[in-house]
């Protein structure tokens, strides 16, 4: 394992498998226990540095760190005078002075965790940066798929929606293909990045054609403001062409699962009956998120400091 987890390219297949296996072992070690706490990171300090609101991701990392007995500091920089970049470096130096062993960073600017990693000694974990990556989300998605389907190699995953602006999609494409899954991106052409043809994926504009051959359907959140920028004509048209409703869910193979990184727009990209169906792994994804993040923190911070 490298020192930081900035993007999924930091993980080769062996590393990624190690994270997933470690996650499974941690879940097993904690299953049914009254004391859901391990002493592994006692005396280590983890800072949750969130420049962007994301209560669910922050809580997930916080719980993961606390279950490993790390000291956790939540540093919410949103709303303070952190519109200018200089503050990122100042913040980094402050954290450095506090002796942070691990920094979990969420930022609206792509690449901010890379910059941070150049300025601090501790390990940096990217908790989502701009439209770049969200590696722990991809790890928890991969873990959830493996948990439900028993494998990743050869699993057919359809990633549906706003790929262009989605860090979740970028991380999942990289990680799932590293782990042997076959990824198909499904979106209107306006929501696919230029150059997507160089990605190791299949691209389709037709959700109905993809669903019968999908083991996993991963729905991405579509933000309504994209409508105003003419990425698609209307929410209704988007939902009709790319939304997952009960009728579409019915054509999925028997064991296929439906995933969503949350938060969902029910009625937009996913219908309530789909989100609440037995195929849905949305609740499991949240639970797995804590275990995956424990595994990542253990693997990055558990060992000898450099």
């Amino acid at each position: 394992m490298r020192k930081h987890l900035l993007e999924v390219a930091d993980l080769d297949r062996a590393d990624a498998t190690l994270v997933l296996d470690t996650t499974a072992q941690i879940e097993q070690a904690l299953a049914g226990r009254e004391v859901k706490k391990l002493p592994t990171l006692r005396g280590r300090t983890v800072v949750n540095l969130f420049f962007e609101d994301s209560t669910r991701t922050r809580i997930s990392f916080e719980l993961a760190a606390k279950r490993l007995s790390a000291d956790v500091i939540n540093f919410s920089a949103k709303g303070s005078s952190v519109s200018k970049g200089e503050s990122l470096k100042d913040t980094a130096l402050t954290l450095e002075a506090m002796g942070a062993d691990g920094i979990v960073v969420r930022h609206s600017a792509s690449g901010a965790p890379h910059r941070l990693a150049q300025w601090v000694q501790g390990s940096v974990v990217n908790a989502g940066d701009g439209t770049h990556e969200h590696p722990t989300q991809a790890l928890l998605d991969a873990y959830t798929i493996r948990q439900r389907l028993g494998r990743l190699d050869g699993v057919r995953v359809a990633v549906v929606g706003d790929v262009l602006h989605s860090r979740v999609a970028r991380s999942n494409v990289g990680l799932l293909t590293t782990l042997g899954a076959e990824v198909t991106l499904v979106a209107p052409p306006t929501l696919l990045p230029v150059g997507v043809e160089t990605w190791p994926v299949t691209v389709s504009y037709d959700l109905d054609a993809v669903l019968p051959k999908a083991d996993v359907v991963m729905m991405l959140r579509v933000q309504a403001e994209r409508m105003n920028a003419s990425f698609f004509p209307s929410a209704r048209e988007y939902s009709r062409r790319y939304g997952l409703d009960g009728r579409r869910m019915a054509v999925l193979p028997d064991d296929a699962i439906v995933m969503h990184p949350g938060p969902m727009n029910r009625g937009m990209e996913i219908a309530a009956e789909v989100a609440d169906s037995p195929r849905s792994t949305i609740v499991a994804q949240v639970g797995n998120g804590v275990s995956v993040r424990m595994a990542v923190l253990y693997l990055l911070l558990g060992g000898a400091p450099e």
């Binding site: 394992m1 190690l18 296996d21 470690t22 072992q25 941690i26 097993q28 070690a29 391990l38 002493p39 592994t40 490993l68 253990y298 693997l299 558990g302 060992g303 000898a304 400091p305």
Partner: peptide, 21 residues
């Protein structure tokens, strides 16, 4: 598996975990 309970992780480095059953 005792890996997550070791007091010498910092000296030995992290390792893959094994079963706890």
């Amino acid at each position: 598996d005792i890996t997550l309970y070791r007091d010498d992780l910092r000296l030995r480095g992290v390792r893959a975990l094994e079963d706890t059953r």
